[in-house]
């Protein structure tokens, strides 16, 4: 796994950086951390697990993204990091 990024720092988006790590470590900065930090971390972990990733270090800078956006950005970053294209077929 190499370091990879997906997403932007625009309002409503989330920038996700994925790199090598042990277990799933998620570091989150969010403009809505108090109300949604817990849910955002859960969506990130759920998405990675769904892709079969169990070891990675994730840094996420969130600007109020919805869950669908978070899933898309995490998936894109994971594909770039692992080189494994999950959209094929």
């Amino acid at each position: 796994m190499k370091n990879s990024v997906a997403g932007t720092l625009e309002s409503g988006d989330i920038m996700v950086t994925i790199g090598p790590g042990e277990g799933l470590q998620v570091e989150l900065q969010s403009s809505v951390a108090a109300q949604f930090g817990r849910q955002i971390k859960a969506v990130i972990i759920e998405t990675l697990e769904g892709l079969g990733i169990t070891d990675a270090r994730v840094e996420a800078v969130d600007k109020g993204a919805l869950d669908c956006t978070i899933r898309a950005r995490v998936t894109a970053a994971a594909v770039r990091a692992t080189g494994k294209d999950v959209w094929k077929d």
């Binding site: 809505v32 108090a34 109300q35 949604f36 930090g37 817990r38 849910q39 919805l66 869950d67």
Partner: peptide, 10 residues
Amino acid sequence: SIIGMPDSLP
């Protein structure tokens, strides 16, 4: 339904 239930503010 779109954003989930927010946690209460500290």
